[in-house]
Design a protein around this nucleic acid. Sequence first.
DNA 1: TTCATATTGACAACATATTGTCATTCTGTA
DNA 2: TACAGAATGACAATATGTTGTCAATATGAA
Lengths: 154, 154
Amino acid sequence: MKKPTRTAAGDAFSHFSISVIRLAAHLTAAGDMLAKPSGQTSARWQVLAAASHASMSVAEIGRVLGLARQGVQRIADLLEKEGLVRYEENPAHQRAKLLMLTLEGETVLRDIQIRQASWADSLGAAVNAQDLRLTTETLTRLLEQLSAPKPLGG
Amino acid sequence: MKKPTRTAAGDAFSHFSISVIRLAAHLTAAGDMLAKPSGQTSARWQVLAAASHASMSVAEIGRVLGLARQGVQRIADLLEKEGLVRYEENPAHQRAKLLMLTLEGETVLRDIQIRQASWADSLGAAVNAQDLRLTTETLTRLLEQLSAPKPLGG
DNA sequence: TTCATATTGACAACATATTGTCATTCTGTA
DNA sequence: TACAGAATGACAATATGTTGTCAATATGAA
């Protein structure tokens, strides 16, 4: 006989998926809360953090964040209008300008990160450090699995 | 001396948060892929599944799914236009109609669930069952923590 | 150099979801 | 009954993100 349409493994994975999606929504909302006092949002914060990490083009930031470059472009243009980032000439590419934080951008990012640190501390303390590490490992393993899908019938 | 702005626990939690958010995006995309052959999307699938589980009003489905009722209303109206659900009179409430699956809605949902089951099986097999269980537990614990924030200074 | 291919930014259309506001309907209390 | 407050659906504005398309720019091979 063939597989039933629902199995223990598949069912466990469904519960897991729902938890991940709902938790992500909560974490994004929390990010908005942390960024709001600086007049920012989760999405803008992510772009600021990426630009702070290294000088990258919009397309590169998209790849790093796992987002479509079009969405990042939209955020980056908003951030530029508000003076938090600027586009620098890219010696390696005429069109793909490098996104750089302005002084105000650095200040805003630092303020958000300070709030984020204490928030993360308080929540991180709510779960065992070992559990958190193991959970992150499992999530990362699945991310890799989903990012590089097997060709066929794998 | 005071806390530094970045700590081991806070930093571990940041990595975790990013993993959760990125994995959720992948899982939603996977849901779209599974629902697409039936002309549906992740969001519509969630609403169909909720309506299938029990007769509920739009607002109730919103609470069950952890979404704003306005978004659910939008999806439900689209599903109604396509004949996958219908609004039934609610003896307990004149305005809050009950969302019911039509025969076509049942068929569509079942088809999606069949695809979902084998997909979840294949991915669920990629991670140790014990890991998946522990991970889900940790995620659930954090969800509860985030859903019911402590009053203050907790 | 030439040319096919990939990358990039710009623009548009669309899907999802949130917040805010309003009028209507329900519920519980007096 | 009367009324305050909560719940609900409708509507609008906004934020985030995707896909598709196009032209300009890089890149690499012939």
